[in-house]
């Protein structure tokens, strides 16, 4: 089937079989940041944004991307470097395999939740598994990033 969608701001026109999974199409289109960690929608590694909403690209038919805006980490490199630096400064990037899906959901959370508590953060990101860090370093990096953003904003206002 022929489909049209926006991938990281670029309009894509391509062919996709009816049962093709979005995750596979995205990798085919060079978005290698999108990873598969399970087949049961449990790991969160394949998280991408669909019209700004975080979704599991392993659970979406490629044809359902028709007319939607899909964003992967390839389309958010600047944000990735900015937040990623905080993650790296905790040593919490570790093997890195879960990082892209984790970052995408962090970005979605920052859009959706204003001033999230630590508990809110843990609940919002619960669908992003990580086996290396025990999560503590990831949480530290988010809290420090939020603080940095807050200070940045205050400085801008002043």
């Amino acid at each position: 089937m022929n489909i049209n969608f926006w991938l990281n701001g670029v309009c894509i026109n391509c062919e996709a079989e009816p049962d093709m999974i979005l995750l596979d199409l995205l990798r085919e289109k060079g978005c290698y940041s999108v990873k598969r960690g399970c087949e049961t929608s449990n790991c969160g590694l394949c998280t991408v944004l669909m019209d700004g909403t975080p979704v599991l690209s392993c659970s979406i038919l490629a044809v359902r991307a028709e007319g939607h805006k899909i964003t992967t980490l390839e389309g958010m490199q600047k944000e990735a470097e900015e937040f990623g630096s905080f993650l790296a400064d905790e040593g919490a990037d570790q093997c890195g395999f879960c990082n892209p899906g984790f970052l995408m959901n962090v970005f979605a959370m920052l859009q959706e939740l204003k001033d999230p508590s630590e508990e809110d953060i843990l609940e919002y990101l619960a669908g992003n598994l990580c086996r290396c860090t025990g999560f503590a370093g990831q949480t530290r990096s988010i809290l420090k990033f939020l603080q940095y953003k807050k200070e940045q904003k205050e400085a801008d206002n002043a």
Binding site: N42, T47, P54, L56, M109
Partner: peptide
Amino acid sequence: LRHIVGVQFRNC
């Protein structure tokens, strides 16, 4: 709802 896997899962 909040225990069901994760936000991305519940968005799907």
